[in-house]
Amino acid sequence: MAHRVAVLAVEEAVGFDLCIPPQVMRAAVRDDLRPLYEVAVCGVSAAPVRMTAGFSAVLDHGPEALAEADTVIIPGTLAVEPRHHGVLSEELAAALALVRPGTRLISICTGAFVLGAAGVLDGRRATTHWRFADTFRRLYPRVELDPDVLFVDDGDVLTSAGLAAGLDLCLHVVRSDFGSEVANRAARYCVVPPWREGGQSQYIDVPLPDGGDSGVSATRAWALDRLAEPLDLAALAAHARMSVRTFSRRFRAETGLSAGTWLIQQRVRRARELLERTDLPVDEVARRSGLGTAASLRQHLRTAIGVAPLAYRRTFRPTG
């Protein structure tokens, strides 16, 4: 028998997330094209479900599909109770009560808030969209949240990061259930890579702090224009006309970081910009960003976002 999957749309549902599991899992077929999954998209009631993209969807199944499923997947949602109050609505709680013990549970993006409100993530490692990590931690402090990864496989409970990371997780599930050949075939059909390197930290845009025109902000701006030069703490303090001790204290007070840590972050940021926008060799990227050598660039980039320079460039630098 095919593995039965129920995809639960919780209003307002993220339509992109909702379409990922049916698309990927229906593309997982045997050599003779027989389906390996039976996918049912359902709601917490029989009513149409409003989507975040400005339309409503009439689903083929109500919550009864949850009682028959071997795997239940919860896509992203704007549902007020789990997203803002850390609880389930009565209707959603009643629907989830239909899920049989031992059923595998999966969330995509902010669907993790529903699993968090249901208590199934307590004491477990999980992830969700990086933008909502702080809210998730506040609402569900018992969950070991890792906002840097694309997905977390904790056995019978799996969670993915935001949006397209649901593709990564669904392909991982197919690979775990039926092997790499089936997963690769499904990925080719969906015209997506069967595996992405790194985590969602590579997609987070970290803005520069705005320190105004006082303190050490002028020195930060000066340093940003000279990242390729051999800057150190003494040189930064001298520019700010402060002692090293006073400069270090003021710098940390304004940025929350040591000057050395901040400098590495900005050099990695510059390297990322060069990898995205130019075809410069990795050695030259390392030199212009102030990281020195290709080996140093690889080390710092892997530490910061979990990928090598060329892998990062393949992701963000269009070809042709």
Results as ranks from 00 to 15, higher is better:
48 P>E: 10
50 R>V: 15
50 R>C: 11
53 A>M: 13
53 A>F: 12
53 A>L: 14
54 G>Q: 00
54 G>Y: 00
55 F>A: 13
55 F>M: 02
55 F>P: 04
55 F>V: 07
57 A>V: 15
58 V>G: 13
58 V>Q: 14
59 L>M: 06
59 L>Q: 03
65 A>M: 08
65 A>T: 11
67 A>T: 09
69 A>C: 04
70 D>H: 12
70 D>I: 08
71 T>L: 08
72 V>G: 11
72 V>K: 08
72 V>H: 09
74 I>E: 05
75 P>Q: 02
78 L>S: 06
78 L>A: 10
79 A>Y: 00
79 A>D: 14
79 A>Q: 10
80 V>K: 12
81 E>P: 01
82 P>G: 02
82 P>Q: 02
83 R>P: 00
84 H>T: 14
84 H>V: 12
90 E>V: 14
90 E>N: 10
91 E>M: 00
92 L>Q: 07
93 A>D: 15
94 A>W: 11
95 A>I: 06
95 A>K: 01
98 L>F: 08
98 L>M: 10
98 L>N: 13
100 R>D: 11
101 P>T: 07
102 G>E: 03
102 G>S: 11
103 T>F: 08
103 T>L: 07
103 T>C: 13
103 T>I: 02
104 R>V: 11
104 R>L: 09
106 I>Q: 07
106 I>P: 08
109 C>T: 00
110 T>C: 00
110 T>Q: 04
111 G>P: 04
112 A>S: 15
112 A>I: 00
113 F>R: 06
114 V>M: 09
115 L>R: 04
117 A>N: 08
118 A>S: 05
119 G>E: 10
119 G>F: 02
120 V>D: 07
